[in-house]
């Protein structure tokens, strides 16, 4: 009975990858210039910064929290770094380190507000979202920052974005994925991450210093947003303060499509990676059949809702297992 039900559950876990394959095949058949290396490369390229944000926020969402600030923190960090090498004369590599530190700092602030001051994550990160957006404009004097070769040197793009015709960013993305998945599945932080998400009070009463771990998790999320800032710069080359707003929702959507539950306690990095790729495939695919950006948003909305409906169905199925198969015989 139980093994049967388990198999059914596993089938449902396969739905996200299956959806990705189906989408890819569908657009390969019906899309113009979709199938092939060029199209594949473009899908990867539009996954970079969303991917970094999504990996980071996956940790947070598994705790049962949310981080609305990642989009603007990404932008703000990139602006701070840009200001450093444009206005302050910092060497670019050092400025990139500053980008990461900025992201980490905002994440740390989120963590402190949520774990120590007990602010609801929604409120704390909403505040940080506005603060970081404003700060980006303030520090740059509302000037656009350039991550083009004249400003960051010829080496920047080949290292972070594309070298020849090879999408280098994909290596970074997969590397980040591997690290995030390792941390989530194999380290103490990852284990506590799930424990906090499924029952924070029980974890605390077991002696887990939940506050500290939560701060660490939000800081990691901020650090990932910082990384996303670098790749955002690499992808767009010009960054206007105020950009980035709304990107957090794309990242969160990718996480949700990947099957991570918004109520916390369950989720996976693989799911998030697939969620990101589904979003990118949809983006490239819809434009390959001649539908513009607003159509992408339109359809992505349906995908998000569909994914959550599926998630609910999966939970209901799991609950049925619970009742149908008592583990104990008297």
């Amino acid at each position: 009975m139980q093994s049967n039900a388990n198999r059914k559950l596993n089938m449902q876990k396969l739905l996200a990858p299956a959806a990705l394959v189906i989408l890819y095949v569908f657009f390969s058949i019906f899309g113009k210039n979709f199938f092939g290396y060029e199209g594949f490369k473009q899908i990867l390229q539009s996954s970079y910064y969303i991917g970094f944000m999504a990996f980071g926020v996956t940790f947070v969402i598994i705790t049962g929290g949310i981080d609305l600030s990642i989009g603007t923190v990404m932008m703000c960090s990139a602006i701070i770094g840009g200001t450093a090498f444009t206005n302050w004369g910092w060497p670019v590599p050092l400025a990139l380190v500053l980008v990461l530190i900025s992201g980490l700092f905002f994440g740390l602030c989120n963590g402190l507000m949520i774990a120590k001051a007990k602010l609801p994550p929604f409120i704390a990160t909403l505040g940080t979202m506005m603060v970081s957006q404003g700060f980006g404009s303030i520090i740059s004097n509302v000037r656009t920052m350039h991550y083009s070769p004249t400003y960051v040197g010829d080496w920047f793009r080949p290292v972070f974005y594309i070298s020849g015709n090879f999408p280098v960013g994909a290596i970074w993305l997969l590397g980040a994925f591997a690290i995030a998945a390792f941390v989530l599945n194999k380290t103490r932080l990852g284990r506590y991450n799930f424990a906090i998400g499924s029952n924070e009070e029980a974890a605390r009463l077991s002696g887990v210093k939940t506050d500290r771990w939560k701060i660490a998790i939000y800081a990691i999320c901020g650090l990932f947003a910082g990384f996303a800032g670098i790749f955002f710069g690499a992808a767009y080359t010009t960054i206007t303060p105020g950009k980035g707003n709304g990107e957090e929702l794309n990242a969160i959507a990718a996480v949700v499509i990947g099957g991570t539950s918004m109520s916390g306690g369950s989720g996976s990095m693989v799911g998030t990676l697939i969620g990101v790729l589904i979003m990118s495939t949809l983006k490239k695919g819809l434009s390959s059949v001649g539908l513009q950006a607003h159509w992408q948003t339109f359809f992505t909305g349906f995908v998000v809702i569909g994914a959550v409906l599926l998630d609910n169905a999966r939970n209901r199925a799991a609950n049925k297992v619970k009742i149908a198969a008592p583990a104990v015989k008297k």
Binding site: R188, R191, Y192, F194, S198, S206, G207, V208, G265
Partner: peptide, 18 residues
């Protein structure tokens, strides 16, 4: 207050000693 219900028996067993 005692258990993380969605987690496994093993995960709960080592919750205080990870």
């Amino acid at each position: 207050y005692g258990l993380c219900l969605p987690l496994s028996v093993a995960d709960n067993t080592v919750m205080a000693t990870l």
